[in-house]
């Protein structure tokens, strides 16, 4: 019952439509960026043509991976943060949470239903984004084998070649893997959300926290801090695009990012359980 209600509220909030629209806009900009890059920067060395079977290494799969990678790092976490803010702080600010808690349901059930709905929404959003990027890559550029070179996306330290079918399988595996990673910023936003009574503050603080931690994890001068930041582990799914996947290393990073997710969840639940509603 609560789940159905939450799903209905999510749909009526138009956040899914807004998120899908923003991601489509992002993919459109990436497409434009790729096109102008191919035209001006590579002097024709990279092809960007309307073909179905593009023989260039620079094809629809490369495009989809680029779009997904940057979307994963910079766009999807913002929707995660928004969702956390909307689920708890927004309900608190509007008094809906008070109304909710007058019903004969436990706080645990309310909290975990909200988390489950938000997590399900993020997973769907990741899948939608990935599918859309692949579809645009197929329709406007054309698929082909996936070739990755060192330096590009910082994904590999040697040339990697995956044939088209194998690459598509890897994209399929990247969906759950990336969704799992995005639960960390999502639950962080839940944690922030339980401490604020204003959705704007909650979303702003969660986004700022994510970006700060992401930047710190990227700068090698702070290398010693990396093990303590969840942002260091989030991109673990990139290992799926290696010819030979280091499964053990990937699982270790997945476990670490899940550890952060569960820790944020536990702390958020603790706060939600104990706080006094006004």
């Amino acid at each position: 019952m609560i789940a159905r209600l939450e799903l209905l509220r999510l749909w009526r909030s138009r956040r899914p439509v807004l998120a899908a629209g923003a991601l489509a806009f992002f993919v459109g900009l990436m497409l434009l960026g790729f096109y102008t890059y191919a035209q001006t920067e590579t002097s024709g060395a990279a092809e960007f043509e309307y073909t179905v079977e593009n023989p260039s290494y620079f094809n629809g799969l490369t495009f989809a991976l680029y779009a997904f990678y940057f979307g994963f790092l910079l766009v999807l976490p913002i929707f995660g943060a928004t969702e956390g803010g909307a689920q708890i702080a927004s309900d608190t600010a509007r008094g809906t949470m008070n109304l909710y808690l007058t019903r004969p349901v436990t706080r645990a059930r309310v909290f975990f239903t909200k988390v489950a709905v938000a997590a399900g929404f993020m997973t769907l959003l990741v899948g939608l984004f990935l599918s859309f990027a692949l579809l645009i890559g197929l329709l406007l550029i054309g698929w082909g084998d996936l070739d990755l070179y060192p330096g590009v996306l910082q994904m590999t330290d040697r040339h990697q070649h995956l044939d088209q079918t194998e690459a598509l399988w890897r994209f399929a595996f990247a969906w759950p893997a990336a969704s799992l990673a995005l639960l960390a910023p999502l639950t962080l936003s839940f944690l922030v959300s339980t401490w604020t009574r204003n959705a704007v503050n909650a979303v702003g603080a969660a986004v700022a926290l994510y970006l700060i931690l992401y930047v710190i994890a990227e700068i090698h001068l702070f290398e010693d801090l990396r093990p303590w930041l969840f942002t260091s582990y989030m991109s673990y799914w990139r290992a799926l695009f290696q010819e030979e996947i280091d499964v053990a290393a990937m699982l270790r990073d997945a476990a670490s990012v899940t550890g952060f997710t569960v820790l944020f969840l536990a702390l958020a639940f603790r706060r939600f359980r104990r706080r006094e509603e006004r």
């Binding site: 699982l251 270790r252 476990a255 670490s256 899940t258 550890g259 569960v262 820790l263 359980r273």
Partner: peptide, 18 residues
């Protein structure tokens, strides 16, 4: 539930150790 979550987080962090 809260205790179980802390425990699960600890297990995950331990599994993540290299």
């Amino acid at each position: 539930l809260e205790g179980a979550l802390y425990l699960l987080a600890l297990v995950c962090f331990l599994l993540g150790q290299e």
